[in-house]
Design a protein around this nucleic acid. Structure first.
Length: 475
RNA sequence: GCCGGGGUGGCCGAGCGGUCUAAGGCGGCGGGCUGCAGACCCGUUAUUUCCCGGGUUCGAAUCCCGGCCCCGGCUCCA
Protein backbone atom coordinates (compact mmCIF):
# COMPACT_ATOMS: atom_id res chain seq x y z
CA UNK A 1 0.00 0.00 0.00
CA UNK A 2 2.99 2.23 0.39
CA UNK A 3 3.65 1.58 -3.29
CA UNK A 4 7.04 0.26 -2.30
CA UNK A 5 8.66 -3.05 -1.71
CA UNK A 6 8.09 -4.01 1.84
CA UNK A 7 9.24 -6.71 4.12
CA UNK A 8 6.78 -9.54 4.11
CA UNK A 9 5.48 -10.25 7.58
CA UNK A 10 2.40 -12.43 7.86
CA UNK A 11 -0.38 -11.37 10.15
CA UNK A 12 -0.37 -14.71 11.87
CA UNK A 13 2.99 -16.08 12.65
CA UNK A 14 3.27 -19.18 10.51
CA UNK A 15 0.15 -18.87 8.41
CA UNK A 16 -0.11 -16.92 5.22
CA UNK A 17 -3.40 -16.24 3.47
CA UNK A 18 -3.39 -15.08 -0.11
CA UNK A 19 -5.86 -14.27 -2.83
CA UNK A 20 -5.11 -14.08 -6.51
CA UNK A 21 -7.56 -12.58 -8.95
CA UNK A 22 -8.39 -15.43 -11.22
CA UNK A 23 -9.50 -15.47 -14.79
CA UNK A 24 -12.73 -14.45 -16.37
CA UNK A 25 -13.17 -17.68 -18.30
CA UNK A 26 -14.43 -16.42 -21.64
CA UNK A 27 -11.48 -17.39 -23.81
CA UNK A 28 -8.29 -19.42 -23.80
CA UNK A 29 -5.67 -18.62 -21.27
CA UNK A 30 -2.81 -16.66 -22.79
CA UNK A 31 0.83 -16.39 -21.83
CA UNK A 32 0.12 -13.29 -19.76
CA UNK A 33 -2.40 -15.03 -17.52
CA UNK A 34 -0.10 -18.00 -17.17
CA UNK A 35 2.74 -15.75 -16.09
CA UNK A 36 0.68 -14.43 -13.23
CA UNK A 37 -0.45 -17.83 -11.99
CA UNK A 38 3.02 -19.28 -12.45
CA UNK A 39 4.50 -16.52 -10.39
CA UNK A 40 2.10 -16.96 -7.51
CA UNK A 41 2.63 -20.69 -7.63
CA UNK A 42 6.37 -20.15 -7.17
CA UNK A 43 5.69 -17.61 -4.46
CA UNK A 44 3.47 -20.02 -2.56
CA UNK A 45 5.86 -22.92 -3.00
CA UNK A 46 8.70 -20.80 -1.75
CA UNK A 47 6.72 -19.75 1.33
CA UNK A 48 5.89 -23.36 2.02
CA UNK A 49 9.48 -24.43 1.50
CA UNK A 50 10.66 -22.06 4.19
CA UNK A 51 8.01 -23.26 6.58
CA UNK A 52 4.83 -21.25 6.20
CA UNK A 53 1.38 -22.73 5.96
CA UNK A 54 -0.24 -21.07 3.04
CA UNK A 55 -3.91 -20.82 2.19
CA UNK A 56 -4.42 -19.72 -1.38
CA UNK A 57 -7.65 -18.67 -3.05
CA UNK A 58 -8.07 -18.12 -6.77
CA UNK A 59 -11.48 -17.10 -8.03
CA UNK A 60 -13.32 -17.49 -11.30
CA UNK A 61 -15.37 -14.55 -12.50
CA UNK A 62 -17.78 -16.81 -14.29
CA UNK A 63 -20.47 -14.28 -15.13
CA UNK A 64 -19.51 -11.11 -16.89
CA UNK A 65 -20.10 -9.04 -20.03
CA UNK A 66 -17.32 -10.83 -21.84
CA UNK A 67 -18.84 -14.20 -21.15
CA UNK A 68 -22.25 -13.08 -22.30
CA UNK A 69 -20.79 -11.62 -25.47
CA UNK A 70 -18.87 -14.76 -26.17
CA UNK A 71 -21.98 -16.85 -25.62
CA UNK A 72 -23.90 -14.69 -28.04
CA UNK A 73 -21.22 -15.10 -30.67
CA UNK A 74 -21.28 -18.83 -30.30
CA UNK A 75 -24.84 -19.67 -29.47
CA UNK A 76 -26.79 -16.79 -30.89
CA UNK A 77 -30.28 -16.76 -29.52
CA UNK A 78 -29.55 -19.81 -27.40
CA UNK A 79 -26.97 -17.85 -25.45
CA UNK A 80 -29.48 -17.25 -22.75
CA UNK A 81 -29.72 -20.92 -21.87
CA UNK A 82 -26.27 -22.11 -22.89
CA UNK A 83 -23.98 -19.35 -21.63
CA UNK A 84 -22.69 -21.51 -18.82
CA UNK A 85 -20.91 -23.70 -21.29
CA UNK A 86 -18.43 -20.91 -21.88
CA UNK A 87 -17.04 -20.64 -18.37
CA UNK A 88 -17.19 -24.39 -17.97
CA UNK A 89 -15.05 -24.93 -21.01
CA UNK A 90 -12.43 -22.39 -20.09
CA UNK A 91 -12.29 -23.34 -16.46
CA UNK A 92 -11.56 -26.86 -17.61
CA UNK A 93 -8.82 -25.51 -19.84
CA UNK A 94 -7.46 -23.47 -16.96
CA UNK A 95 -6.98 -26.59 -14.88
CA UNK A 96 -5.47 -28.53 -17.75
CA UNK A 97 -2.94 -25.82 -18.34
CA UNK A 98 -2.15 -25.46 -14.67
CA UNK A 99 -1.37 -29.13 -14.61
CA UNK A 100 0.97 -28.88 -17.56
CA UNK A 101 2.70 -25.91 -16.02
CA UNK A 102 3.04 -27.62 -12.64
CA UNK A 103 0.96 -24.93 -11.02
CA UNK A 104 -0.24 -26.40 -7.76
CA UNK A 105 -3.87 -26.41 -6.72
CA UNK A 106 -5.15 -23.50 -4.72
CA UNK A 107 -7.13 -24.31 -1.60
CA UNK A 108 -10.32 -22.77 -2.93
CA UNK A 109 -11.57 -21.80 -6.36
CA UNK A 110 -14.72 -19.84 -5.62
CA UNK A 111 -17.01 -18.88 -8.46
CA UNK A 112 -19.06 -15.75 -8.63
CA UNK A 113 -22.21 -17.63 -9.59
CA UNK A 114 -21.94 -19.65 -6.42
CA UNK A 115 -21.73 -16.56 -4.24
CA UNK A 116 -24.58 -14.44 -5.52
CA UNK A 117 -26.31 -14.49 -2.14
CA UNK A 118 -23.18 -13.36 -0.34
CA UNK A 119 -22.80 -10.56 -2.79
CA UNK A 120 -26.39 -9.46 -2.42
CA UNK A 121 -25.95 -9.40 1.34
CA UNK A 122 -22.88 -7.19 0.95
CA UNK A 123 -24.67 -4.85 -1.40
CA UNK A 124 -27.44 -4.53 1.17
CA UNK A 125 -24.90 -3.53 3.77
CA UNK A 126 -23.25 -1.06 1.44
CA UNK A 127 -26.55 0.60 0.67
CA UNK A 128 -27.58 0.77 4.29
CA UNK A 129 -24.29 2.40 5.20
CA UNK A 130 -24.66 4.94 2.44
CA UNK A 131 -21.81 3.81 0.25
CA UNK A 132 -24.01 2.58 -2.54
CA UNK A 133 -27.13 3.84 -4.22
CA UNK A 134 -29.78 2.45 -6.50
CA UNK A 135 -30.07 4.00 -9.93
CA UNK A 136 -33.45 4.51 -11.62
CA UNK A 137 -33.07 1.32 -13.64
CA UNK A 138 -32.40 -0.70 -10.51
CA UNK A 139 -28.64 -0.99 -10.95
CA UNK A 140 -26.65 -0.43 -7.81
CA UNK A 141 -23.54 1.73 -7.88
CA UNK A 142 -20.77 2.25 -5.43
CA UNK A 143 -20.14 5.89 -4.65
CA UNK A 144 -16.41 6.37 -4.63
CA UNK A 145 -16.48 9.86 -3.18
CA UNK A 146 -17.53 8.33 0.12
CA UNK A 147 -14.11 6.78 0.39
CA UNK A 148 -11.57 9.45 1.32
CA UNK A 149 -8.52 7.40 0.41
CA UNK A 150 -9.80 6.34 -2.98
CA UNK A 151 -6.91 6.29 -5.44
CA UNK A 152 -4.20 5.58 -2.94
CA UNK A 153 -3.16 2.18 -4.24
CA UNK A 154 -2.82 3.25 -7.82
CA UNK A 155 -1.54 6.74 -7.06
CA UNK A 156 -4.51 8.31 -8.74
CA UNK A 157 -6.09 11.57 -7.88
CA UNK A 158 -9.85 11.50 -8.15
CA UNK A 159 -10.23 14.99 -9.55
CA UNK A 160 -7.64 14.30 -12.21
CA UNK A 161 -9.19 10.99 -13.01
CA UNK A 162 -12.45 12.74 -13.59
CA UNK A 163 -10.86 15.35 -15.78
CA UNK A 164 -9.22 12.78 -17.99
CA UNK A 165 -11.87 10.17 -17.73
CA UNK A 166 -12.82 8.50 -20.94
CA UNK A 167 -15.70 6.86 -19.23
CA UNK A 168 -18.94 7.28 -21.02
CA UNK A 169 -21.21 8.62 -18.36
CA UNK A 170 -23.82 6.01 -17.71
CA UNK A 171 -27.24 7.47 -17.11
CA UNK A 172 -27.81 6.51 -13.50
CA UNK A 173 -24.35 7.27 -12.12
CA UNK A 174 -23.76 10.17 -9.79
CA UNK A 175 -20.11 10.21 -10.72
CA UNK A 176 -18.60 8.70 -13.84
CA UNK A 177 -16.09 6.85 -11.68
CA UNK A 178 -18.73 5.11 -9.63
CA UNK A 179 -18.83 1.46 -10.47
CA UNK A 180 -21.60 -1.09 -10.67
CA UNK A 181 -22.14 -3.51 -7.83
CA UNK A 182 -25.23 -4.83 -9.52
CA UNK A 183 -26.24 -4.48 -13.14
CA UNK A 184 -29.86 -4.47 -14.15
CA UNK A 185 -31.09 -7.10 -16.52
CA UNK A 186 -31.17 -6.62 -20.26
CA UNK A 187 -32.99 -8.87 -22.68
CA UNK A 188 -31.20 -12.11 -23.38
CA UNK A 189 -28.96 -11.95 -20.35
CA UNK A 190 -28.85 -14.31 -17.42
CA UNK A 191 -30.19 -12.87 -14.23
CA UNK A 192 -30.68 -13.39 -10.52
CA UNK A 193 -33.38 -11.69 -8.53
CA UNK A 194 -32.65 -9.05 -5.90
CA UNK A 195 -34.63 -6.47 -3.97
CA UNK A 196 -33.55 -3.83 -6.50
CA UNK A 197 -33.90 -5.43 -9.86
CA UNK A 198 -33.25 -8.68 -11.59
CA UNK A 199 -29.76 -8.65 -13.00
CA UNK A 200 -26.25 -9.79 -12.40
CA UNK A 201 -23.28 -8.80 -10.28
CA UNK A 202 -20.80 -6.19 -11.39
CA UNK A 203 -17.08 -6.65 -11.34
CA UNK A 204 -14.93 -5.88 -8.24
CA UNK A 205 -17.34 -6.85 -5.51
CA UNK A 206 -16.94 -10.58 -5.96
CA UNK A 207 -13.28 -10.58 -5.04
CA UNK A 208 -13.91 -8.78 -1.78
CA UNK A 209 -16.81 -11.03 -0.89
CA UNK A 210 -15.05 -14.27 -1.71
CA UNK A 211 -11.69 -13.29 -0.28
CA UNK A 212 -13.23 -12.28 3.01
CA UNK A 213 -15.34 -15.42 3.11
CA UNK A 214 -12.46 -17.82 2.64
CA UNK A 215 -9.63 -15.88 4.22
CA UNK A 216 -11.02 -13.30 6.61
CA UNK A 217 -10.04 -9.63 6.57
CA UNK A 218 -7.39 -8.43 6.42
CA UNK A 219 -5.48 -11.24 4.80
CA UNK A 220 -1.83 -11.29 3.85
CA UNK A 221 -1.46 -10.78 0.16
CA UNK A 222 -3.65 -9.99 -2.77
CA UNK A 223 -2.29 -10.42 -6.23
CA UNK A 224 -2.96 -10.22 -9.88
CA UNK A 225 -1.70 -8.74 -13.09
CA UNK A 226 -0.45 -5.18 -13.10
CA UNK A 227 -3.39 -4.11 -15.19
CA UNK A 228 -5.70 -4.82 -12.29
CA UNK A 229 -4.29 -2.09 -10.10
CA UNK A 230 -6.76 0.36 -11.47
CA UNK A 231 -9.63 0.26 -11.32
CA UNK A 232 -10.18 -3.29 -10.08
CA UNK A 233 -8.06 -3.33 -6.95
CA UNK A 234 -8.73 0.26 -6.18
CA UNK A 235 -12.42 -0.53 -6.22
CA UNK A 236 -11.94 -3.62 -4.10
CA UNK A 237 -10.21 -1.48 -1.53
CA UNK A 238 -13.04 1.02 -1.58
CA UNK A 239 -15.53 -1.77 -0.97
CA UNK A 240 -13.33 -3.23 1.73
CA UNK A 241 -13.21 0.14 3.42
CA UNK A 242 -16.97 0.47 3.35
CA UNK A 243 -17.50 -3.04 4.61
CA UNK A 244 -14.72 -3.41 7.17
CA UNK A 245 -13.86 0.15 8.07
CA UNK A 246 -10.26 -0.10 7.01
CA UNK A 247 -8.66 0.81 3.76
CA UNK A 248 -6.48 -2.25 3.81
CA UNK A 249 -8.23 -5.48 2.85
CA UNK A 250 -4.89 -7.15 2.27
CA UNK A 251 -1.55 -6.39 3.82
CA UNK A 252 0.47 -6.66 0.65
CA UNK A 253 -0.54 -6.10 -2.92
CA UNK A 254 1.55 -7.93 -5.45
CA UNK A 255 1.24 -7.19 -9.13
CA UNK A 256 2.90 -9.16 -11.86
CA UNK A 257 4.26 -7.29 -14.88
CA UNK A 258 2.53 -7.67 -18.19
CA UNK A 259 3.67 -9.76 -21.10
CA UNK A 260 4.33 -8.00 -24.36
CA UNK A 261 4.93 -9.24 -27.88
CA UNK A 262 7.58 -7.33 -29.80
CA UNK A 263 7.32 -4.66 -27.17
CA UNK A 264 3.59 -4.28 -27.43
CA UNK A 265 0.85 -5.41 -25.20
CA UNK A 266 -1.16 -8.42 -26.24
CA UNK A 267 -4.56 -7.41 -27.37
CA UNK A 268 -7.40 -8.61 -29.46
CA UNK A 269 -7.21 -5.69 -31.81
CA UNK A 270 -3.52 -6.23 -32.53
CA UNK A 271 -4.24 -9.93 -32.95
CA UNK A 272 -1.06 -10.77 -31.15
CA UNK A 273 -2.43 -12.82 -28.31
CA UNK A 274 -0.49 -15.99 -27.73
CA UNK A 275 -2.59 -18.65 -26.03
CA UNK A 276 -0.78 -21.01 -23.75
CA UNK A 277 -1.97 -24.07 -25.63
CA UNK A 278 -0.20 -22.66 -28.69
CA UNK A 279 3.07 -22.51 -26.82
CA UNK A 280 2.56 -25.96 -25.38
CA UNK A 281 2.42 -27.42 -28.85
CA UNK A 282 6.06 -26.56 -29.27
CA UNK A 283 7.44 -26.43 -25.78
CA UNK A 284 7.01 -28.36 -22.61
CA UNK A 285 5.18 -26.62 -19.78
CA UNK A 286 8.36 -26.65 -17.73
CA UNK A 287 10.15 -24.70 -20.43
CA UNK A 288 7.55 -21.98 -20.12
CA UNK A 289 7.88 -22.03 -16.34
CA UNK A 290 11.64 -21.64 -16.50
CA UNK A 291 11.27 -18.93 -19.10
CA UNK A 292 8.99 -16.97 -16.80
CA UNK A 293 11.42 -17.37 -13.94
CA UNK A 294 14.19 -15.85 -16.00
CA UNK A 295 12.57 -12.43 -15.80
CA UNK A 296 11.77 -10.68 -12.56
CA UNK A 297 8.04 -10.71 -11.89
CA UNK A 298 7.64 -6.95 -11.71
CA UNK A 299 9.29 -6.35 -15.04
CA UNK A 300 7.54 -6.47 -18.34
CA UNK A 301 8.28 -9.69 -20.17
CA UNK A 302 8.68 -9.44 -23.90
CA UNK A 303 7.64 -12.85 -25.04
CA UNK A 304 9.64 -14.60 -27.74
CA UNK A 305 10.08 -18.12 -28.97
CA UNK A 306 13.84 -17.57 -29.04
CA UNK A 307 13.71 -16.97 -25.33
CA UNK A 308 11.80 -20.19 -24.89
CA UNK A 309 14.46 -22.06 -26.80
CA UNK A 310 17.09 -20.64 -24.47
CA UNK A 311 15.07 -21.81 -21.53
CA UNK A 312 14.67 -25.23 -23.04
CA UNK A 313 18.39 -25.51 -23.51
CA UNK A 314 18.91 -24.61 -19.90
CA UNK A 315 16.38 -27.12 -18.72
CA UNK A 316 18.26 -29.83 -20.56
CA UNK A 317 21.37 -28.90 -18.68
CA UNK A 318 19.50 -29.12 -15.40
CA UNK A 319 18.02 -32.48 -16.26
CA UNK A 320 21.39 -33.74 -17.41
CA UNK A 321 22.75 -32.90 -13.98
CA UNK A 322 19.93 -34.90 -12.39
CA UNK A 323 20.55 -37.88 -14.62
CA UNK A 324 24.28 -37.78 -14.04
CA UNK A 325 23.75 -37.70 -10.31
CA UNK A 326 21.51 -40.73 -10.52
CA UNK A 327 24.20 -42.65 -12.35
CA UNK A 328 26.85 -41.31 -10.08
CA UNK A 329 24.93 -42.68 -7.16
CA UNK A 330 25.56 -46.23 -8.33
CA UNK A 331 29.30 -45.71 -8.31
CA UNK A 332 29.64 -43.57 -5.25
CA UNK A 333 31.08 -44.92 -1.99
CA UNK A 334 28.92 -46.40 0.69
CA UNK A 335 30.73 -44.61 3.46
CA UNK A 336 31.88 -41.01 3.63
CA UNK A 337 34.72 -40.09 1.32
CA UNK A 338 37.41 -37.40 1.43
CA UNK A 339 35.47 -34.89 -0.63
CA UNK A 340 32.13 -35.20 1.13
CA UNK A 341 32.39 -32.26 3.51
CA UNK A 342 33.33 -29.88 0.74
CA UNK A 343 30.59 -31.01 -1.57
CA UNK A 344 27.99 -30.87 1.16
CA UNK A 345 29.11 -27.37 2.00
CA UNK A 346 28.96 -26.28 -1.63
CA UNK A 347 25.45 -27.64 -1.97
CA UNK A 348 24.43 -25.89 1.20
CA UNK A 349 25.75 -22.59 -0.09
CA UNK A 350 23.84 -22.90 -3.31
CA UNK A 351 20.63 -23.70 -1.49
CA UNK A 352 21.15 -20.75 0.79
CA UNK A 353 21.82 -18.33 -2.07
CA UNK A 354 18.84 -19.66 -3.95
CA UNK A 355 16.54 -19.05 -1.01
CA UNK A 356 18.06 -15.66 -0.32
CA UNK A 357 17.44 -14.63 -3.89
CA UNK A 358 13.78 -15.54 -3.54
CA UNK A 359 13.54 -13.87 -0.16
CA UNK A 360 14.74 -10.71 -1.87
CA UNK A 361 11.51 -9.73 -3.58
CA UNK A 362 11.28 -13.05 -5.38
CA UNK A 363 14.33 -12.60 -7.54
CA UNK A 364 13.75 -15.70 -9.62
CA UNK A 365 16.36 -14.83 -12.29
CA UNK A 366 19.03 -14.91 -9.61
CA UNK A 367 17.55 -18.10 -8.21
CA UNK A 368 17.79 -19.68 -11.64
CA UNK A 369 21.44 -18.77 -11.89
CA UNK A 370 22.03 -20.46 -8.54
CA UNK A 371 20.33 -23.55 -9.79
CA UNK A 372 22.56 -23.53 -12.83
CA UNK A 373 25.63 -23.21 -10.69
CA UNK A 374 24.54 -26.33 -8.83
CA UNK A 375 24.11 -28.18 -12.09
CA UNK A 376 27.52 -26.98 -13.27
CA UNK A 377 29.06 -28.20 -10.08
CA UNK A 378 27.72 -31.62 -10.92
CA UNK A 379 28.80 -31.68 -14.54
CA UNK A 380 32.17 -30.10 -13.99
CA UNK A 381 33.32 -31.72 -10.76
CA UNK A 382 31.17 -34.39 -9.22
CA UNK A 383 30.95 -36.68 -12.20
CA UNK A 384 34.73 -36.96 -12.23
CA UNK A 385 35.08 -38.19 -8.71
CA UNK A 386 32.66 -40.96 -7.90
CA UNK A 387 35.30 -42.70 -5.81
CA UNK A 388 35.69 -39.70 -3.52
CA UNK A 389 32.11 -39.09 -2.43
CA UNK A 390 29.41 -41.09 -0.71
CA UNK A 391 25.99 -42.13 -1.89
CA UNK A 392 24.49 -39.96 0.84
CA UNK A 393 26.14 -36.88 -0.52
CA UNK A 394 25.09 -37.64 -4.06
CA UNK A 395 21.49 -38.26 -3.15
CA UNK A 396 21.45 -35.15 -1.02
CA UNK A 397 22.73 -33.05 -3.90
CA UNK A 398 20.10 -34.56 -6.16
CA UNK A 399 17.41 -33.94 -3.62
CA UNK A 400 18.36 -30.29 -3.25
CA UNK A 401 18.54 -29.77 -6.98
CA UNK A 402 15.11 -31.25 -7.51
CA UNK A 403 13.38 -29.54 -4.61
CA UNK A 404 14.72 -26.13 -5.52
CA UNK A 405 13.75 -26.72 -9.11
CA UNK A 406 10.28 -27.71 -8.00
CA UNK A 407 9.79 -24.33 -6.36
CA UNK A 408 10.16 -22.84 -9.81
CA UNK A 409 7.86 -25.47 -11.26
CA UNK A 410 10.56 -27.43 -13.06
CA UNK A 411 12.40 -30.73 -12.62
CA UNK A 412 9.25 -32.70 -11.96
CA UNK A 413 10.12 -35.36 -14.51
CA UNK A 414 13.35 -36.62 -13.09
CA UNK A 415 12.46 -40.22 -12.44
CA UNK A 416 13.22 -42.76 -15.08
CA UNK A 417 11.47 -46.08 -15.31
CA UNK A 418 13.73 -48.67 -13.76
CA UNK A 419 13.52 -51.15 -16.62
CA UNK A 420 14.28 -48.44 -19.10
CA UNK A 421 17.14 -47.27 -16.93
CA UNK A 422 18.63 -50.74 -16.82
CA UNK A 423 18.28 -51.31 -20.53
CA UNK A 424 20.03 -48.04 -21.25
CA UNK A 425 22.79 -48.92 -18.81
CA UNK A 426 23.18 -52.27 -20.50
CA UNK A 427 23.36 -50.72 -23.94
CA UNK A 428 25.95 -48.25 -22.76
CA UNK A 429 27.96 -51.06 -21.23
CA UNK A 430 27.94 -52.97 -24.52
CA UNK A 431 29.05 -49.86 -26.32
CA UNK A 432 31.89 -49.42 -23.85
CA UNK A 433 33.15 -52.89 -24.67
CA UNK A 434 32.98 -52.15 -28.37
CA UNK A 435 34.97 -48.97 -27.79
CA UNK A 436 37.58 -50.86 -25.86
CA UNK A 437 37.86 -53.20 -28.82
CA UNK A 438 38.18 -50.11 -30.96
CA UNK A 439 35.07 -51.06 -32.85
CA UNK A 440 34.12 -47.43 -33.23
CA UNK A 441 31.87 -47.94 -36.15
CA UNK A 442 29.43 -50.00 -34.12
CA UNK A 443 29.91 -47.86 -31.00
CA UNK A 444 29.03 -44.74 -32.96
CA UNK A 445 26.07 -46.48 -34.45
CA UNK A 446 24.75 -47.26 -30.98
CA UNK A 447 25.34 -43.70 -29.85
CA UNK A 448 23.48 -42.39 -32.84
CA UNK A 449 20.56 -44.73 -32.41
CA UNK A 450 20.32 -43.96 -28.72
CA UNK A 451 20.28 -40.29 -29.58
CA UNK A 452 17.44 -40.95 -31.96
CA UNK A 453 15.57 -42.35 -28.98
CA UNK A 454 16.40 -39.31 -26.91
CA UNK A 455 19.27 -40.77 -24.93
CA UNK A 456 22.22 -38.44 -25.18
CA UNK A 457 25.54 -40.08 -24.52
CA UNK A 458 28.58 -38.21 -23.33
CA UNK A 459 31.96 -39.87 -22.89
CA UNK A 460 34.13 -38.38 -20.21
CA UNK A 461 37.56 -39.52 -19.21
CA UNK A 462 36.15 -41.30 -16.20
CA UNK A 463 33.14 -43.01 -17.63
CA UNK A 464 30.25 -42.51 -19.98
CA UNK A 465 27.25 -40.56 -18.79
CA UNK A 466 23.92 -40.24 -20.44
CA UNK A 467 20.84 -38.09 -20.11
CA UNK A 468 17.31 -38.36 -21.36
CA UNK A 469 16.21 -35.59 -23.64
CA UNK A 470 12.76 -34.87 -22.31
CA UNK A 471 12.01 -32.17 -24.82
CA UNK A 472 12.90 -33.98 -27.99
CA UNK A 473 9.57 -33.65 -29.73
CA UNK A 474 9.47 -29.91 -29.47
CA UNK A 475 12.05 -28.93 -32.06
C1' G B 1 -3.60 15.78 -20.32
C1' C B 2 -3.03 12.80 -15.72
C1' C B 3 -0.84 8.30 -13.40
C1' G B 4 2.49 4.15 -13.52
C1' G B 5 6.66 0.96 -15.38
C1' G B 6 11.01 0.64 -18.21
C1' G B 7 15.83 2.12 -20.97
C1' U B 8 22.40 -2.35 -18.60
C1' G B 9 27.13 -6.19 -23.58
C1' G B 10 25.46 -9.10 -30.26
C1' C B 11 20.65 -10.82 -27.81
C1' C B 12 17.89 -12.15 -23.17
C1' G B 13 18.46 -10.58 -18.29
C1' A B 14 20.34 -9.70 -12.72
C1' G B 15 22.42 -5.83 -9.89
C1' C B 16 19.46 -0.56 -7.15
C1' G B 17 25.33 3.82 -2.78
C1' G B 18 31.51 0.87 -2.00
C1' U B 19 32.90 -6.63 -2.63
C1' C B 20 30.77 -3.59 -10.20
C1' U B 21 37.27 -3.80 -14.00
C1' A B 22 28.45 -5.21 -13.76
C1' A B 23 25.56 -12.29 -11.88
C1' G B 24 23.55 -15.90 -14.99
C1' G B 25 21.87 -17.60 -19.78
C1' C B 26 22.00 -17.58 -25.18
C1' G B 27 25.23 -16.52 -29.22
C1' G B 28 30.54 -15.69 -30.78
C1' C B 29 35.72 -16.77 -30.25
C1' G B 30 39.91 -19.77 -28.33
C1' G B 31 41.28 -24.12 -26.00
C1' G B 32 40.45 -29.00 -23.35
C1' C B 33 38.57 -33.85 -23.17
C1' U B 34 37.81 -37.65 -27.01
C1' G B 35 39.15 -42.61 -31.71
C1' C B 36 35.43 -39.20 -33.30
C1' A B 37 31.32 -36.45 -31.44
C1' G B 38 28.87 -33.75 -28.12
C1' A B 39 23.00 -30.78 -25.97
C1' C B 40 30.50 -32.16 -21.85
C1' C B 41 34.49 -29.11 -19.45
C1' C B 42 37.75 -24.66 -19.11
C1' G B 43 38.91 -19.73 -20.64
C1' U B 44 37.38 -15.37 -23.24
C1' U B 45 33.50 -11.97 -24.87
C1' A B 46 30.52 -4.19 -21.38
C1' U B 47 37.40 -1.62 -19.16
C1' U B 48 36.85 6.70 -20.82
C1' U B 49 31.00 1.56 -19.06
C1' C B 50 25.19 0.86 -17.44
C1' C B 51 19.75 6.32 -22.72
C1' C B 52 21.63 11.84 -22.49
C1' G B 53 23.00 16.31 -19.44
C1' G B 54 23.73 18.22 -14.73
C1' G B 55 24.03 17.53 -9.27
C1' U B 56 24.66 15.07 -4.19
C1' U B 57 28.73 12.01 -2.20
C1' C B 58 35.28 10.28 -0.21
C1' G B 59 32.62 6.98 -3.69
C1' A B 60 26.74 6.15 -8.32
C1' A B 61 24.48 1.62 -13.06
C1' U B 62 22.58 2.35 -8.19
C1' C B 63 20.24 8.71 -4.86
C1' C B 64 18.32 13.91 -6.69
C1' C B 65 17.01 17.42 -10.76
C1' G B 66 16.23 18.25 -16.03
C1' G B 67 15.75 16.05 -20.83
C1' C B 68 15.05 12.10 -24.66
C1' C B 69 12.97 7.40 -26.09
C1' C B 70 9.79 2.94 -25.35
C1' C B 71 5.64 0.48 -23.05
C1' G B 72 1.31 0.39 -20.21
C1' G B 73 -3.10 2.37 -17.24
C1' C B 74 -6.99 6.33 -17.02
C1' U B 75 -12.94 1.87 -21.27
C1' C B 76 -12.79 -4.64 -20.76
C1' C B 77 -8.12 -6.86 -19.52
C1' A B 78 -3.69 -11.28 -15.82
Amino acid sequence: MSRRIEKFVPILERDVRGYVCGPTPYDSMHVGHARTYSFFDTFVKFLRYIGYNVTLVINFTDIDDKIINRAREEFGSEAYIRWREIPERYIREFFEICEKLNIGRADHYPKVTEHIDDMIASIRTLISRGYAYVAPDGSVYFEIEKVPEYGKLSGQDISKLMAGARVEPEPGKKNPLDFALWKSWKPGEPWWSTPWCPGRPGWHLECVVMASKYLGVPFDFHGGGLDLVFPHHENELAIGYALYGSYELARYWIHVGLVTIHGEKMSKSLKNIIPVHEVLKRYDGEVLRLYYSMTHYRKPLDFSYEGLSDAEQLLRTLYAACDYLRELYREARDEAGPEDPRVVEDVRKVEESFLLALADDMDTPRAVSELISLARMVTSKLIYMPEKISKDTVSHALHVLISLGNILGVLTKTTIDETLFNIIELTIEVRQRLRRQRNFELADYIREELSRQGVIVTDTRVRTYWTLDRFRQST
